[in-house]
Design a binder for these strands. Structure first.
Lengths: 215, 215
DNA sequence: CAGTTACCACCTAGGTGCTAATTT
DNA sequence: AAATTAGCACCTAGGTGGTAACTG
């Protein structure tokens, strides 16, 4: 997921241990389509999200003392998204052409519970936070060229698509080779789905901040 | 460090949380040199290790329930060694031309202590294990061609040095370019020191096993 | 037709031993 | 003379968007 969600935390107990986690919630129950000539997302149908419990991404530094969490910017740059409902790699499962918003959870460690393999949120000791500016729309192919440009400009892994002066990208190098495609389902491995960020701030440009009182 | 140390654990409390860690201890206080014509390591001087407290490598899966530790082979394939005494990357610091043996520690989690950033071993709740066959001698340049061959054959990252049929390795591709070397200390970044394994079993070929009674 | 996927060239990031240059 | 280091070509591993092929 790029740009990645980055947060700062305040007012934790410095000596208390916390887990920090992220999940992604549906914004509504609508399916969208992009209308090119008006550059707008329009409602295109309904979806029932109610039967799906979202997957939880636990920050790899967890568990960690409040002091340490507060001293650093907490970056979720390893979060992976997929549209494969059968995913077995622990990625966050989303449906394409829908709107979502990330949630960040600060979870106080409970010595009575084994949280080392937490799959879902505990019922107490959790504070959750949303940031409206991080809402985004999922796609399998980019609809909006400004998003494509933002990603290519900002993501180090997309460096190969910058610098149109050396125009060797964008057209296939070996167009004479007709590629053969595997029969559907032959391998069955998950392909990472592209995703489109609507308003999420670019990592390094600005940082979401929030405060939590004690907890 | 390759080959990497790999262990199995038994008789842990399935519900108890444990840290697993490794450090590397001097075998003796001798400096060695390799006598090529007799293919032997000979004592070449004395060293005082007593003032150095060895660095601890905490396995990245820590902390974790005993049940989980026992279910898997615990591999220390991310351990990094250096001969730079000023190292600030947390690597294990060793002296070249000395003999060492890895130690594996099973550390029962103590709720009273914050072990999330452990730098040294607690005074209690620790069981430590050595395996004679993992003893090795440190070098900055390989002395023994059998070791070089073992590493090239077994380490995926050394694949470029296999297959002498395509003999494009081993001799410089551009010998006409006389390389300029930076003045000493200009950058100062740590270089990973090569290291020579004497008897350590090859990962995947055999596995060290040990048992611990309760704890 | 719109949406999705497989495959690709192109990157980042970093782990190998080899060799020449340098240090001790 | 012996030990160490920097830079190198060559790998593994995996993150990018573009494109053609495929799906429904």
């Amino acid at each position: 997921m790029f740009p990645s969600v980055r947060v700062k935390v305040r007012n934790l107990d410095p000596c208390q241990q916390y887990y920090v986690a992220m999940d992604v919630m549906p914004v509504d129950s609508k399916r969208y389509r992009y209308v090119y000539h008006s550059s707008q997302w329009m409602v295109a149908g309904n979806t029932d999200h109610s039967c799906i419990s979202p997957r939880l991404y636990v920050h790899p530094d967890s568990p960690c003392a409040g002091e340490t969490w507060m001293r650093q910017v907490i970056s979720f740059d390893r979060v992976k998204l997929t549209n494969n409902e059968m995913d077995d790699k622990g990625h966050i499962i989303l449906q394409s052409m829908h709107k979502y918003k990330p949630r960040v959870h600060i979870i106080r460690q409970d010595p009575r519970l084994d949280l080392s393999q937490i799959q879902s949120l505990p019922s107490e000791g959790v504070h959750s936070f949303c940031f409206p500016e991080t809402e985004f729309t999922t796609v399998t192919a980019y609809q909006n060229q400004q998003i494509t440009k933002l990603k290519i400009d900002r993501n180090p892994f997309a460096k190969g698509f910058r610098d149109p002066g050396r125009n060797r990208y964008g057209s296939r190098t070996c167009p004479q080779n007709t590629r053969q495609r595997d029969p559907r389902g032959s391998a069955g491995l998950t392909t990472e789905t592209g995703h489109q960020i609507k308003c999420l701030r670019v990592a390094g440009q600005s940082r979401a901040e929030f405060h939590t009182s004690q907890n």
